[in-house]
């Protein structure tokens, strides 16, 4: 039984602002029925996450790692009969967690800041040459000047300003 004595009644406003209106959710579980990660251990049950938000269970939500199991297939988004946009809810909860606890910020965020990519696109020349391609593709990996501009753009964002120690380059 969750502790309902320590809740924040307006928690939903932090989440709702960035996605569909979760107040329409009546816990029908359609989002769970079609969700691959509902088979996870522990399972991702989006309807439970929505309840936690609506009940204002801030502490519980801040310790819940299940939003990060989402496979991003968006089947829930397609099937939700109430227009809640469960996939967007899932991402919005991840962002809320990342804003309130920096340990939730994925390392790949800093990687994209640093290199423009999530993979070593500029470092697999041999593999690319073997299939008849140029060693470095014409992405940001090939243009250091553009990468610097890309970083300059991101230096103006909250995530980079508030966590500058994570972002090198």
């Amino acid at each position: 039984m969750p502790d309902l004595t320590n809740t924040r009644a307006d928690l939903w406003r932090d989440i709702v602002g960035e996605c569909g209106d979760i107040r329409h959710c009546f816990n029908c579980s359609t989002c769970v029925a079609g969700c691959p990660a509902a088979e996870g251990a522990p399972p991702l049950f989006i309807r439970n996450l929505v309840r936690k938000v609506l009940l204002g269970l801030e502490d519980e939500l801040l310790e819940d790692e299940t939003p990060w199991l989402c496979v991003t297939c968006s089947a829930c988004e397609e099937m939700c009969p109430m227009g809640v946009h469960p996939f967007e809810v899932c991402l919005a909860i991840r962002r809320w967690q990342a804003r309130n606890d920096e340990t939730f910020i994925p390392a790949s965020v800093a990687e994209v800041f640093e290199t423009g990519h999530t993979q070593p696109v500029g470092g697999v020349g041999e593999r690319r040459r073997a299939v008849g391609l140029e060693e470095v593709p014409p992405t940001i990996a090939r243009f250091p000047g553009l990468l610097e501009k890309f970083r300059e753009m991101l230096r103006g964002t909250d995530i980079v300003r508030d966590n500058d120690y994570m972002f090198k380059g």
């Binding site: 994209v112 990519h117 014409p138 753009m153 991101l154």
Partner: peptide, 28 residues
Amino acid sequence: DLEGSACCPAFGTFPSADEIASLAVSAW
């Protein structure tokens, strides 16, 4: 070629951390 294009960004990166930053990467 879309010269200078970057990560889309992948859902597990900026979309999971900062929405405006995420939209900025797509808009780039």
